[in-house]
């Protein structure tokens, strides 16, 4: 099985979010970048297929040179090789089109991604990619088993879960449950050393066309101070929620 794991290079979850150039660009000054948390679940599941079923793993990202440390981290965790498509994409469709090209040329039969990236929260790249290459697709995946060409997949639905079966090739957009939090791996010294020698190829983009652009960014409005209710007078909270906030 040839697995492609899509890695998004995103600000660490503790990052303060600021904008620059008149609120038209994300300010990455002082921001630490990491593998998108949802993609870590995907990569970890891919490692299981590698170790138990002999799969090979290619990690791919669409981004400029600054994303390479993140790709190297995926290699250190255990991907066999990596691809960077050399462009700073403007929207999800552009990313999906570049990934579709990689999928077609590499004839991967399983593509594992996270269900969204925590920067732009688009939640669109995996589904668009699947539609572009005409692979089966499951979103919000919380379980994946593969026997030969047959996959059994669970996905989260509102208030429950659904079990699906599908043939490969397949695109999966994963989240926690695909593997557990405790299964996530931190690269060890040996992995980091080996990662330096693993192939990382750089491809040029096929297109620069986008369907959407960012006109501007905004920060959420600052909120007023918290009203403290005394433990001696909890009825006041009920009163405030009913009469002031009007939510009960």
């Amino acid at each position: 099985m040839k697995i492609l794991v899509c890695i998004s290079h995103v600000p660490d979850t503790t990052s303060k979010i600021n904008f620059k150039e008149n609120d038209t660009k994300f300010d990455n000054n002082g921001v630490q970048f990491v593998i998108n948390p949802y993609d870590e679940f995907a990569l970890t599941r891919a490692m299981w297929f590698k170790e138990k079923q002999g799969a090979t793993i290619t990690a791919v990202t669409v981004g400029n040179t600054s994303t390479e440390p993140t790709l190297r981290k995926a290699l250190a965790i255990g991907a066999d090789d990596a691809i960077r498509v050399n462009t700073e994409a403007i929207d999800g469709l552009q990313v999906a089109k570049e990934l579709a090209e990689v999928v077609k040329n590499g004839s991967y039969n399983l593509v594992l991604a996270g269900k969204e990236s925590i920067d732009y929260n688009g939640g669109m790249v995996p589904g668009m990619l699947a539609a572009l290459v005409d692979y089966n697709f499951v979103n919000a995946c919380i379980g994946l088993e593969i026997e030969g060409e047959k996959a059994t997949i669970s996905r989260e639905i509102d208030g429950g879960k659904e079990i699906l079966s599908a043939n490969l090739p397949l695109v999966i957009a994963g989240q926690k449950g695909l593997v557990e939090e405790k299964d996530l791996r931190i690269p060890n010294m040996r992995g980091i050393m080996m990662a330096r020698k693993k192939p990382l190829s750089i491809l040029e983009p096929i297109s620069t066309k986008t369907a959407t652009t960012t006109a501007s960014f905004e920060k959420p409005a600052t909120k007023s101070a918290c009203k403290i209710v005394s433990t001696e007078n909890i009825g006041e909270l009920v009163d405030l929620l009913h009469n002031e906030a009007k939510v009960i």
Partner: peptide, 21 residues
């Protein structure tokens, strides 16, 4: 859950730009 699942596929099918959230 179903809306988030289907929307990006629809966007590709009909050549549309998609804004989520």
């Amino acid at each position: 859950a179903n809306g988030l699942y289907v929307a990006p596929m629809v966007a590709v099918n009909i050549n549309a730009g998609y804004a989520s959230n």
